[in-house]
Amino acid sequence: MEFNYNDRVLKPGYTSCMGCGEALAMRLVLQACGKNVIFTNATGCSEIFTSRYPTSSWNAPWLHSLFENSAAIASGVYYALKHKGLLGKVSVVATGGDGGTADIGLQCLSGAAERGDDFLYVCWDNEAYMNTGVQRSGLTPFNADTTTSPAGKVSFGNDRCKKDMPQIMAAHGIPYVGIGSCGYYRELGGLVKRAMAIRGPKYLQVHSVCPLGWKSDPAKTIDMAKLAFETCLYPLYEIINGVTKARRAPKDGWKPAEEYLKPQGRFRHLFRAAEGASQIIRIQAVAAANMRKFWPEVAVPQFALDAEAKVAEMDKVTA
């Protein structure tokens, strides 16, 4: 049997890790974008594993410049196309990892969104600086162990919750914000198509499992991503022209946070230390808040309500 990869936007041969959720998400998102697109890329895993000179997996025009300017070079490409009258024929899609998007690249992205530049920005959110060796980013979840937010004798790892990038982007008043997941890979194409049908700045964030950084089983990438949603620790929703529409809630109800945390090495310390249990309760309370916010019609399960009550008790201000 012969394979023909000429129709692929991202051709095989790239050097991502085994079980890379980002590579899977990329392949499908880019395919949905199509070949009449100029792509930009922030420095990071996706850039490194697709573009080792003199090879390239990109079967579409592709521009990588720096870590923090994927959105700004995409703006430059957009204005060039606009000037040449090519906007109907060619689209622009900018990509970057969570650090290149939410931390070092946030200023350029905000500038582009505020200007109303017409392109889709896709953030591959694998929740840390994986390319440089798993350092904490602004999108690293609460209590995750990374190489710069290590769990230690007096630390449970990352002491802050994820920066709420989708809401930050929505606050720019842009017409499309979407959150997808490599675990629901069949839905990625739909998110892209809905985004690309709208003129103006669009933001898509894709939860991308990183077995290397999460210390999870590379064979369980899809399962891990699904659990992130099923525990409501990674809510999936879209905001189209200001209207928020959440993905349908799991048929069998929300799962306890532990089911997502336990298989990941980055949360292992929570299950070892004596005080870890109270930290897991805090994470469960984060999930409960997500449930309430995005699925107000779905009953919050008792374990989530209990966690909220315990956190309230723990944080009670005593005179």
């Binding site: 410049s65 720096l66 300017n69 700004a72 350029c108 505020e114």
Partner: peptide, 23 residues
């Protein structure tokens, strides 16, 4: 196209992207 950027870093990056796109 006069692009009202958010910083000189953005200015240089925008003209980089525009130049790469052939203008």
């Amino acid at each position: 196209e006069f692009v009202k950027v958010e910083s000189e870093f953005g200015a240089a990056s925008v003209v980089l992207g525009a130049s790469a796109a052939g203008v």
